[in-house]
Simulated assay, not measured.
Amino acid sequence: HSALVRVCHWVNALCFLILLMSGLQIFNAHSSLSWGAATDFEHPFLSFSAKENDNGDVTAGETTLFGHTFDTTGLFGASRGSDGEMEERGFPSWATLPAEQDLAMGRRWHFFFAWLLVINGLVYVANLVAARHFRDLWPSVADLRAIPRAVRDHALLRFPKGKEALHYNVLQKLAYLSVVVAFPILVLAGLTMSPAMDSAFPWLLALFHGRQSARTVHFVLAACLVAFVVVHLVMVLVSGVFNNMRSMITGRYRIEEDAR
């Protein structure tokens, strides 16, 4: 990877971490998701809530998904605060930025690093176009036919060697291409939640069928990116953490020769 790509990678990593934690802080202000122009308080398809005893003390956390309720005490709905007492929170304090309930500060963190991520993303895409690297992410027909073999090889922890290691395999291409496609949708959905942006660009509301729908799209795509990052980190660990980290810091990557 070039120096520019490596810098963009680490800026993305920092921005994503802060955006995730500040986004969970914002989500905690209204811990439910629905579809349409207005909030469906009676029938959200996802909600985090807390149960209280007769004294008004929080005793448990619950997650409701498509009408099915699960006890998620300590993780979703209710968790212990800094004072050790159980409190109603969509996501626990260790997962949010800032840790305490502070919507205004969470929004400041989120908006600043969101624009930093957008600028960094534009630089990355401009580099893809200028260096004609888009073809490196676009799977060929032969790549698509090789998906079953690629899945089997990854499941068996067999990774490319020799010349094959110099190029993305089909699973990497599909994963990175999905991120490139999802990124602008995620940004547009985030902008749609702003009344000021809706006033300036009313087509945003029509595009997402309402502000609550945009909020849901934003949350779901963010969750998909979290899943991508988790898989990405697992692959880094099992395929050679030192070699992978060195390559993304210095640009040097040691290629193992294929014995076949």
Rank of each mutant, 00 (worst) to 15 (best):
G240A: 02
V231R: 12
S32D: 09
S79L: 09
E88G: 01
V241H: 12
R211T: 13
A99D: 01
P98E: 01
G90A: 10
A146G: 11
V180S: 00
Q101M: 07
G77W: 12
M21C: 15
G74D: 08
T250W: 01
W115Y: 14
G61A: 06
F41H: 12
A130H: 13
M235G: 03
N53P: 09
N28T: 11
Y176C: 06
P195R: 05
S199W: 15
R80D: 01
N28A: 05
S49F: 13
L157P: 13
H167P: 00
L24T: 08
L177K: 13
P44F: 08
N120V: 09
P44I: 08
L171S: 10
A165K: 13
A214L: 05
L4D: 00
L33P: 08
G84P: 06
F159S: 14
D198I: 15
G106H: 07
I147M: 05
I18K: 04
H43F: 14
E85V: 14
T69N: 02
L17V: 15
F91D: 14
P148Y: 14
Y253R: 00
R252G: 07
P195E: 05
F111H: 03
V226M: 03
V217C: 04
R260V: 15
L174N: 04
W10G: 05
A189G: 01
